[in-house]
Write a protein that binds this DNA or RNA. Structure first.
Length: 271
DNA sequence: ACGAATGTTGCGGG
DNA sequence: ACCCGCAACATTCG
């Protein structure tokens, strides 16, 4: 579910609500939600009432900076991070929550329990396992052009590889490849300069456009107070198997590629 | 009714 | 380097 546009949407919605707030306490309801094994440290440091200095995103990671620590959330498939002035007792999937100044809460829900957060001194472990973020100033046609040549794997798999570019997931990979007219199984180093240029442009175009629509909600993605993203209505290939290609009218195929459901047009996305 | 599939990541094995 | 299958877990789909 949450890929770069969805994570950016969550960050944008949280920023005005939690910035400069102090954390008063922390409650952990599902143990594995704390990825780092340092609950005691976290509890004792939070007793000193740290302030939330900033909230940002890197790839699909939400980075909340405290005075001298970082809380780094990853929503995985079904994570839902939001701010509220009360805890709804009917919410069955709350995995942890931070009580903030003003008696409000930063709440983390997660149906499938895959998501969670790291409590860190620095961001090394995060940056070690992520490549460049598409919104980074250094992400350019030159960067992708230079680096894509070194990679032989199929482009779909490369786009999903967070150590290469971070933030793209299964939905946007398919959307980007369709718009760029690139076959998902095309070896990355076989893509010609013209197509690489399209790929570069379309990564930014699609991700930025989706952010404008607050991301894609197919089933679970939510932000703020139960709000959903509406980019689903803009999807051109993802989920459209057996329907007509919006460009050439041929049938959209669905096939498992790189271990993931992949949607593409065999006619206008050629090898 | 029950196995398969779901938008993520990390690991182990070939 | 690359590819695959599986695991983490809950719910829905066919």
């Amino acid at each position: 579910m949450p890929e770069l546009p969805e994570v950016q949407t969550v960050v944008n919605s949280l920023h005005p609500k939690i910035i400069n707030k102090k954390i008063l306490s922390f409650d952990l309801l599902w143990n594995k939600t704390l990825y780092t094994n340092n609950l005691n440290t976290l509890k004792s440091e939070i007793s000193k009432l740290p302030e939330i200095i900033s909230i940002n995103r890197h790839g699909k990671y939400i980075i909340i900076k405290l005075n001298n620590k970082f809380i780094v959330f990853h929503l995985r498939m079904t994570g839902y991070l939001y701010h509220s002035i009360n805890i709804n007792a009917k919410s069955s999937y709350i995995r942890c929550f931070f009580t903030l100044s003003n008696n409000s809460y930063l709440i983390y829900e997660d149906i499938r329990k895959f998501g969670g957060f790291y409590y860190l001194d620095n961001l090394n472990v995060i940056f070690d396992k992520t490549g460049i973020d598409p919104m980074d100033i250094n992400f350019s046609f030159d960067w992708i052009s230079k680096n894509i040549k070194k990679r032989k794997k199929m482009i779909k798999s490369l786009l999903l590889d967070q150590r290469f570019i971070c933030g793209i997931g299964n939905i946007y990979a398919d959307e980007i490849l369709w718009l760029s007219k690139i076959h998902p199984k095309m070896p990355a180093n076989n893509i010609n300069a013209n197509k690489v240029n399209k790929l570069y442009t379309n990564i930014l175009k699609i991700l930025n456009n989706s952010i404008k629509y607050h991301g894609t909600t197919i089933i679970n993605f939510k932000f703020d107070n139960m709000k959903t993203g509406t980019y689903k209505n803009q999807l051109t290939v993802y989920g459209r198997q057996n329907q007509n290609c919006k460009r050439c009218n041929n049938i959209i195929h669905r096939q498992k590629i790189a271990g993931r459901s992949t949607f593409f047009c065999k006619f206008c996305q050629k090898y």
